[in-house]
Design a protein around this nucleic acid. Structure first.
Lengths: 128, 128
DNA sequence: CCAATAATTCGATGATACTGGAAATATGGA
DNA sequence: TCCATATTTCCAGTATCATCGAATTATTGG
């Protein structure tokens, strides 16, 4: 499934995983780009590049307040990713995965929407 | 954490995710390389390349029987990955994740070993 | 409109990753 | 030993990713 692959790819990088962890800690309010860059010592262009990736994967959301843009972790997307991986891990077996709540507190995420088993596209391949 | 990044990176690819799913379905016995290649229509060299990646990430194991090599999903590693992601998703909040058993049946995985919170290395960066 | 601040986009460069044909290695059997 | 089968390694070509300075866009306040 394309979504899962994008999410996995987004997290499969030092800086991006660090960014995501930071945002998870920061909670729903999120953090301004500048604050993230300062904390993780990333050049603005580099940071913007990685944030774009995380946004494209749906793991991070952005909202503008004046001239600063707050980025926040998308807990729902993360829950869905974990749900998908659990599917991959368990297949037939009944595997209840208790879902997560935002660090900031508040909302308890609803039982993750089960991803249908055969979402993997068949991959025709071969023949460059 | 390096291990998690390697695992995420390994799964963040069409063919490799397909391979892993196939192996999860196949259960503990695993599948010969040839069978995987036939099922997914991958050239031997390409398949070998991806399997090496999955092995390096610890998500897949291999055992030789005669001239054929059986590859199998490492359920424990997958559980640990899910555990790590759950940590990332929940941070402070207590998030019980029910772990998975191999599709083949048998063993119920023990409650995932909690990954310590600050495993992210500090990343000095900046200054090419 | 102009200056200052916050962030993104552009562009060039270097580094990795993917792919698959061909050759090499490993194994079992006649 | 010689052959067939199973898989990996080597190699080269292509493609995608990562980094960051400089230029650009957005926004607020004089």
């Amino acid at each position: 499934m394309k979504t899962a692959i994008r999410a996995l790819g987004s997290l499969a990088h030092d800086s991006r995983l660090a960014i995501f962890r930071l945002l998870v800690q920061a909670g729903e309010a999120g953090l301004p780009v500048g604050a993230i860059g300062e904390k993780l010592q990333l050049a603005p262009a580099t940071l913007s590049f990685h944030l774009a990736g995380l946004k494209h994967a749906g793991l991070v959301t952005a909202r503008r307040v004046g001239r600063t843009i707050y980025h926040a972790a998308n807990y729902t997307a993360m829950n869905e990713l974990i749900g998908y991986l659990s599917e991959n891990c368990c297949q037939g077996a009944d595997c209840g995965v208790a879902m997560c709540a935002p660090a900031a507190g508040k909302q308890i995420a609803q039982p993750v929407k089960k991803v249908s088993r055969n979402e993997m596209t068949a991959r025709p391949r071969r023949g460059r």
